[in-house]
Design a protein around this nucleic acid. Structure first.
Lengths: 178, 178
DNA sequence: ATTTGCATGTAATCTGTTACATGATTCA
DNA sequence: TGAATCATGTAACAGATTACATGCAAAT
């Protein structure tokens, strides 16, 4: 499905950048819904260059250190926009190991089962605090056409997801205790 | 991480079954949080047999058709229980193509953006109805120690996830329209 | 000087999907 | 007798992770 390709094209479409910067974007902006290591990104950039979807210029940091600054080509932009507009059927539910554990958790003694859930609850509470803190950076809701507005939408989505996980876990714990 | 291994062991631990039956279980019981095709299951069963985690007996359906009915070994059960009790750090957020699309959606014209979200909303509403219908099969909440209780917990989780997605999408659409 | 961060790549392995391949059984 | 389902496998490919590998730049 080449999702990595389109994630990269989308980022480079926002702003020309190097493989290193892309890696950082995956760790920050996209981390709530996509991941990729540099070991996946560099080969993909090579491939995209060969396909003519991106091109690069060499920039020098300091005296000799070279970096490749990639920008999207007209062809690449068309390809990306085609992907973006095409409305796909819903993806299969994403895999979640923790839900698998819960599915088998009746085989654990009650106390261990509770620990499993309480531990997960704590982690999601911490994450929610972190996300809500990020949200305070938005003083107002940005203009709809901007990258910041989309950013705001996905952050809102991440917050709602964490709130849902917390509500579910609390309900699970309550039912296991009663 | 061998998650497929433990998903299979967990199912066989509930009840001895064939590769074909396992495939069906993945499509029904586990479909809300894990997927696997038969082309992944059969080789894994072979590997688990070699590792001594499962063993099988040949059963005959009809006159000649052979099926391998797998059961878990003592070693396999210990391995599985170890995996189940070990509390792991939270997994990285699962990948979701749709959220990636939303992240880039400000590049679409307003109408197409709305179509993207409305279409997804419809699909999640349909899925929610389906899950709620499944929930009606539980007349009462099953006993905590049973497989049915865990089943109930993950179904509840799936419902809450769909409700969250619907609430998020409605909010996104509202913000895009205003 | 040493550590942290910038910067780019490859190799080996693991995990997962799609397609290929075969044949028996059951029900309409 | 034909279609749907039962039943088991392999092969090729795609996608992703972990480890290996190197070297410059900036800050302490």
């Amino acid at each position: 499905m080449r999702t990595l390709k389109y994630a990269i094209l989308g980022l480079i479409n926002q702003k020309s950048m190097s493989g290193y910067e892309l890696t950082q974007q995956f760790e920050s902006a996209l981390c709530e819904f996509w991941t990729a290591n540099h070991s996946q990104i560099y080969p993909e950039l090579k491939k995209l260059t060969e396909e003519g979807a991106v091109e690069y210029e060499i920039a020098i940091s300091g005296n000799v250190l070279e970096k490749k600054v990639y920008s999207i080509t007209e062809q690449g932009r068309e390809d990306f926009m085609g992907w973006l507009a095409k409305d796909e059927p819903m993806e299969p539910t994403p895999k979640e190991i923790f839900r698998l554990r819960v599915f088998f958790s009746n085989r654990l003694e009650a106390k261990k089962r509770e620990i499993l859930m309480e531990n997960q609850l704590l982690q999601h509470q911490r994450r929610l605090r972190h996300l809500k803190n990020n949200q305070t950076k938005f003083k107002v809701i940005p203009d709809k056409q901007t990258d910041e507005f989309s950013d705001y939408l996905v952050l809102m989505g991440a917050i709602m997801r964490e709130e849902m996980m917390i509500a579910w876990l609390e309900q699970c714990i309550k039912l296991c205790e009663s």
